[in-house]
Amino acid sequence: MEFCPTCGMLLQYELPHMDRPARFFCPTCPYVCHMDSKVKIKRKHRLVKKELDPIISKDDELEHLPETEAPCPNCGHLKAAFGQQQTRSADEPMTTYYTCKKCRHNWKED
């Protein structure tokens, strides 16, 4: 989108006609901007996704979560870290996520 430098209106595009090149023109004032018919791309840049380091690792996260006595269904260990999240509507109970402190097995309780 281009705007008129004189009055600020949105410029309209007009196709080339006969010997006149394509142009942008302002519908409210006499401003006209002629366009060159040949446009050259100087260089192409390939976008590279930047690798991000996690702020908190999985081990750190497990250390900072509260702990409870919940038997692990995988190894039977009694200590697990837990967190809660509202996954359904507000009148439904929260979902509790557990992670075993010994084998790192994850499970949830609705």
Rank of each mutant, 00 (worst) to 15 (best):
S57L: 02
D53F: 14
C33G: 07
W107R: 03
A70F: 02
K108A: 06
S57D: 03
G83Q: 02
V32W: 06
P73G: 04
T68R: 13
M1G: 01
D60R: 02
K49G: 13
C29G: 04
T99N: 13
K50T: 11
T6S: 13
P73I: 01
S89D: 01
R88D: 12
L11H: 05
E92H: 12
E2L: 06
R43M: 10
H77N: 14
A80C: 12
E2P: 03
F24P: 07
K40G: 01
K49F: 15
P27V: 04
E67I: 12
C103T: 13
V48T: 02
T96Q: 08
S89M: 02
V32Q: 14
L47H: 00
R46Y: 09
F24T: 08
M94C: 01
E109L: 15
P93C: 11
K49Y: 11
T6F: 04
S89L: 01
P66F: 02
K40H: 08
V48D: 04
M94R: 11
A80W: 06
E67Y: 01
L52Q: 12
K42I: 12
A80M: 06
E63K: 11
C7Y: 07
K49N: 14
Q84I: 13
S57Q: 00
F82Q: 05
K49I: 15
K101R: 14
C26S: 03
E51T: 14
C29A: 08
I41S: 01
K108L: 07
A80S: 13
P21Y: 00
L52P: 01
C103W: 13
T6Y: 00
L47I: 08
R104P: 02
L78Y: 07
D36L: 08
M35Q: 15
D60G: 03
D110M: 14
K101A: 11
R23G: 09
T87G: 14
M94G: 01
R43L: 10
E109G: 09
K101I: 10
E2A: 05
I56Y: 00
K40F: 10
L47P: 03
A70K: 11
F24D: 08
P16M: 05
K44F: 05
H17W: 04
P66Y: 00
M18F: 03
M94Y: 04
N74M: 03
Y98S: 02
C33T: 02
K44P: 02
A22P: 09
P30K: 10
M9C: 02
E67K: 15
K108F: 03
K50G: 01
C100F: 06
R43F: 11
C100P: 07
E92R: 11
T28Q: 08
E14D: 10
E14V: 14
P93Q: 11
H77L: 00
K42R: 12
L62T: 09
P93V: 11
I56Q: 03
C7W: 08
H17I: 09
Y13T: 14
F25H: 08
K42N: 13
Q86Y: 12
H77M: 00
A90V: 04
A81T: 09
L11T: 05
P73S: 05
S57R: 05
I41K: 03
H17N: 09
A80N: 07
K44T: 06
H105C: 02
